[in-house]
């Protein structure tokens, strides 16, 4: 349970997971933000207006999967670091996850890092495909990693600069 240990449960996660057919089409965002907190930068970050808050600033973000094209601009805009972009159509066996990163060291593109699930457990290794820095992001990096497809809904963090053991 999220409010007991900080890990979003499968039941809590279910409504956030994009449909099978949408996932097949390519990258799409997941806003893992299920609490009524006063915060709205994601709404303004989306150039396609795919994220809305109906009941004002303390509403949870509602993401229109059909409108979202997975551009990743919302990822670094979230002060809670709770938005991820998943691309299941990346390759036959692997998917990509784009996540926010504010730690040191900063991995290089091509580097292999540890991929962690929502509990902080290392579940696989990940190849860093892209490291995006932008002045607009104000020192929050957006990093795209490649991981096995079956772990795309589990991996939500990376640890760089550590030895990653082969499975």
């Amino acid at each position: 349970m999220l409010n007991k240990d900080g890990i979003i449960s499968l039941a809590e996660l279910a409504p956030l997971i994009p449909s099978e057919s949408r996932l097949k089409k390519g990258p799409v965002a997941m806003a893992e933000c299920i609490q009524d907190i006063p915060c709205d930068p994601c709404v303004l970050a989306c150039p396609r207006h795919a994220i809305t808050m109906k009941a004002g600033i303390t509403d949870q973000p509602h993401l229109d999967q059909a409108v979202c094209n997975g551009c990743t601009l919302c990822v670094a805009s979230c002060p809670g670091l709770a938005i991820f972009v998943v691309n299941m159509a990346h390759a036959p066996r692997s998917a990509t996850v784009t996540l926010p990163y504010e730690m040191l060291p900063v991995p290089k593109e091509g580097e292999v890092v540890a991929a962690l699930d929502r509990s902080g457990k290392t579940v696989c290794e990940a190849k860093v495909l892209k490291v995006m820095k932008s002045k607009v992001y104000d020192r929050t990096l957006t990093i795209t990693i490649e991981i096995p497809k079956d772990l795309a809904m589990s991996v939500r963090a990376i640890r760089a600069g550590v030895k990653v053991g082969r499975k």
Binding site: L2, N3, K4, D5, G6, I7, I8, E32, C33, I34, Q35, I37, C78, G80, L81, A82, M103, L116, D117, R118, S119, G120, K121, R156, A157, R159
Partner: peptide, 17 residues
């Protein structure tokens, strides 16, 4: 019995272990 702060803050430290 439950986390006091915003849950997104909790998740972001939890997933770092």
């Amino acid at each position: 019995p439950t986390i006091g702060g915003y849950l997104v803050h909790a998740s972001k430290i939890r997933r770092l272990g």
